[in-house]
Amino acid sequence: MKEKNGLRLARRLALGPYGLWAMLFILVPLLFVAYYAFTDNDFAFTTDNIARFFTATSVSDGVVTHTYLLIFWRSLKLAVISTVICLLMGYPIAYILSRSPLRTQKILITLIMIPMWMNFLIRTYAWMTILQDTGILNSFLRLLSLRPVHIIGTEGAVVIGMVYDYFPYMILPIYSVMAKMDVRLEEAARDLGCNSFGVLRRVIFPLSLPGVISGVTMVLIPSISTFYISQKLGNGKFYLIGDAIEGQYVANNLHFAAAIAFILMVILLIGMALMQRYANSRAAA
């Protein structure tokens, strides 16, 4: 009994540093965000900042004017497109990876992770030089006597940037679930009458769902709130919700910036809760 208490104390002590960290740098800032979102410049309670997000008909960011709801919709749209592309590309790769010889797995995982070691800004600038009208891609196309393409400054360029940046976050969780999956289950499914698609639909996919959910979460959430990619690869034409927060912050409208951040957070939390519920219901079925 005494030893058990000692263990419990040790466990608590071990959790201490992280608890403190979480308090100071996660919980307290979150409370500040909420506090700023619901106060005006004199720190008096107000819901004006929240209301402004939904009602403000337009903002001027120097290039185009648009409502915040439109900005949010666009962020959501590009983030969902990027996430879907990451999932469609990442899922088969994760599967093939998990069924490769161990050595191959290690090498490929390293290759997938290498871009993550490079700075995010540098990666984005690299894509600028590739995608520009006079960039590497178009020079290459001209070399092959093909028609150059105009990509920079389109939504497509923003999506390419997001997919590139967040792709590893999709593959890794799916891969780790699949690597633990028993290969005999696939054989059993084939033995019991499934063709390859049946094995995927009835065994591999349901069992990999936890990995898919965490991959989707890890790509969707950062890409919905990203700001730099759209400025550089979209030539600033695709003002995203992250850009809006940054813009308000730079313009010293801290309270409104906090309100946008707060709303985004609430929407994401609801989205994640729904997704978790879907996963749980699938698991129970």
Partner: peptide, 11 residues
């Protein structure tokens, strides 16, 4: 086939 460690579908 009845597999060695049964290979039942855990889901």
């Amino acid at each position: 086939t009845v597999f060695q460690r049964y290979a039942l579908f855990p889901h």
